[in-house]
């Protein structure tokens, strides 16, 4: 597991993180709050049976949510992303029941959820550190994947535009590329957007010709 408490990333590491702790066991919750005193984690606690969780999530804007896996409020958390379009948040679930390991194995490959055994106040800080790190890592990978996909898409449009230009304007590959680049520079647009415009224009011209 990558630790994010490295000195070089001190600005990110020392920033305060808001935690929403959803636990009906008040005693356990209090000991967790005490254990996290004087760390970068600021805990707001909420008993599971209490209503008003939605308002709390809006108010606290938690960076991490820590919840008992047996809490009925898990379904509400599931909806934050899918229905209410909140940004996904790391969720750390704890469970005092057996079989936690098995559930963990199946959840672990998931997005942001992370199951730990019965939460032990002494272990809670490293667990949270690990969850935050995992979540950031996952999103970094996801962003990278999106960037790569986008890059591929844009190359595809540029290639297509180039080929269409070569065909319709009888240009060489180099000429086609230069003409696109010049248009992009003159109009202050991205090459990709110029390519897309060319493709749609030439396509509609082609269609028009077919009808003639």
């Amino acid at each position: 597991m990558i630790s994010i408490a490295k000195p070089q990333s001190n600005s990110a590491a020392s920033a305060q993180l808001n935690i929403l702790l959803i636990d009906e066991n008040v005693q356990r919750a209090e000991s967790i709050v005490t254990a996290l005193d004087k760390t970068r984690y600021k805990v707001s606690h909420l008993a599971s049976s209490q209503i008003g969780l939605l308002k709390q999530v809006d108010k606290i804007q938690p960076d991490i949510i820590v919840i008992d896996i047996e809490s009925p409020n898990r379904d509400m958390l599931e909806s934050l992303h899918t229905i209410s379009h909140h940004n996904p948040k790391p969720v750390v679930m704890f469970s005092s029941q057996q079989d936690t390991e098995t559930i963990n194995l199946s959840v672990q490959s998931g997005v942001s959820a992370y199951v730990v055994g019965d939460i032990d106040p002494e272990r809670v800080k490293p667990i949270l550190d690990a969850a935050v790190a995992r979540f950031r890592e996952f999103h970094k990978l996801k962003d990278e994947l999106n960037d790569t996909k986008h890059e591929l898409e844009s190359r595809k449009s540029i290639d297509l535009a180039k080929r269409l230009l070569m065909k319709t304007n009888k240009m060489s590959e180099e000429q086609a590329f230069h003409s696109m680049r010049k248009t992009a520079m003159d109009t202050g647009q991205k090459l990709e957007n110029v390519a897309k415009t060319i493709v749609s224009m030439l396509r509609s011209l082609e269609k028009g010709n077919e009808h003639d």
């Binding site: 049976s49 939605l54 009925p72 409020n73 509400m76 599931e78 229905i83 209410s84």
Partner: peptide, 8 residues
């Protein structure tokens, strides 16, 4: 639209 557990 929000999700609330049936018990609540």
């Amino acid at each position: 639209m929000v999700v609330v557990p049936p018990v609540s």
